[in-house]
Simulated scan of single mutants.
Amino acid sequence: MRKKNKMAETKAQRLRSVRAATLADVEGADTAFINILSRLPVKSILSFRTVSKHWYDSIRNKFFAKQQLTISRDKPCFIACPRVGTMMKLYSMEPGSFRKRHLITLDPDDRNDQDIMYMVSSFNGLICCINDNDVSGNDDFYDLQIRIINPCTREIFLLPQGTPSFRFEPAIGVAYGTGNNLDYKVFRFFCPGDKERFFECEVYHSGTGVWKNIGSVPCIPMYSHFSPFRSSHVFVGGKIYWLSSLDEPGEILSVDFEGIFSVIQLPIYQGDHKEEDGITEGSYLINYQGDLSIVILHPEDIDIWIWEKNCENYSWEHKCRVKSPFSDDDLVLSISSLKNHISYVTERKWCYYNMDTRRWKKGKTDYARFMKTSMFPFTESLLPCNCSGEL
């Protein structure tokens, strides 16, 4: 009996020794170890923090966060909030698919239940959400609560309060660094005092953690029923773009990462286009494969224009016109783009248009399911919400 117990004990000791040696070999080859670990889903990576101190330190390492983000960028998906409510439910969806995977339900403690939260941007695995923030004691001033959220790590970061805005709901846009620079900036438009129709912009920089006023602006983002707080925008090629006016000739406001503003005109319909063609209220800015694009909805057709560089100058090029699958009473709530798919969400259905095959793919849903829908390209990351500097 003693001999059997001794043999069993020896086998168990050998097995533990082999396992320990194998784990040590893997951990010792840091490059291979990080390369393997960084390819896993963020949820799995986070669960491995308790394996050992080496694993914990490796996962918290800035180089690892960069490696994971680089790999994750090669397999982006959509992040969607199909319907706003007291709580915000976020889902991930693969391009061209209607299958949703629940990511997170957001209900921050420091928010009034009556203040609906909206998702307005997605970048580097982080999202930006905004909601009303009452300025106590004065009905003439408005403010917003602005949060940067990592849906995968469940971290929520509330930005400091901005300058109260006089009789004007503030509008925002988010710019973010490219390459190794993971800073982000939130541009916030507001009316500074008792002088209506005079607007300024202040910028929150994740590297400093404070707001900085950068002065007056040439124009402001336009109001849209489907765009809460005038904050519908896209970030393309180092610049934020907002629709500013649809009145002919129409304007787009842009600002670069350094805070330099410019205004460009909307596409001009001419030549063979019909008189009823032109800019409509159903106009949406998107980032199509790295180019600023505008999608213009007509009763029977959809036009897609691309802001392209020709030699040293930019100009609008008509990409294509496609037959609209939407009826007159089927209101388009949101348009976004990822890879070769352009996603359209209406009150009644979810549609993808494949720009390569020129085919529609439609998914039906309940009429009341979608309301003030938001949808953006998304990639998983481990980045902290107050990230700054270079990795």
Rank of each mutant, 00 (worst) to 15 (best):
L15F: 10
R321Q: 11
H54R: 11
D139M: 06
I146S: 09
S262C: 12
D256N: 15
K89S: 13
G193S: 14
D115T: 04
D301T: 15
Y204Q: 05
E94W: 02
I306G: 01
I306A: 00
C387L: 05
H225S: 14
P384Y: 07
S165P: 01
C77V: 15
D57E: 07
I268M: 13
Y204E: 08
G389R: 04
C311K: 12
E312P: 00
S315T: 12
F235M: 05
P384G: 08
D277A: 12
S52E: 07
I214V: 13
N61C: 11
K319E: 11
D30C: 06
E308H: 13
P170V: 01
I220W: 05
S254H: 07
T373D: 07
S224L: 07
L246F: 06
F257S: 05
V236M: 02
Y314G: 01
Y184T: 07
S72Q: 02
I127M: 05
M355W: 04
E196T: 14
M87H: 08
S245A: 14
S374H: 01
N150R: 07
R73F: 04
P192K: 01
A65K: 14
W360Q: 08
G96D: 07
R60N: 15
G179H: 01
D194K: 10
I34S: 15
Q289C: 11
F141C: 03
S244L: 01
S97T: 10
Y176E: 01
D356R: 13
A368P: 00
C152G: 00
I59W: 07
T10D: 11
F261P: 04
P267V: 09
D107P: 00
A20V: 00
P192A: 04
S343Y: 07
I304R: 01
K212H: 10
S336R: 00
D330C: 14
Y142M: 02
G179E: 10
D328H: 11
S327E: 12
S47Q: 15
D113T: 03
G238A: 08
Q145L: 09
P221S: 10
D30K: 12
F166W: 13
T365F: 05
E248D: 07
W316Q: 10
K349V: 00
I264W: 03
K43S: 15
N5K: 11
L23R: 07
Y367Q: 04
F166A: 03
Y204D: 08
P164N: 04
N35H: 13
C77S: 09
Y56K: 10
N35P: 00
I220S: 11
E155S: 10
E281D: 14
Y204A: 04
L46W: 12
D132Q: 09
D134G: 00
L391I: 02
T50W: 05
S52D: 06
P151S: 09
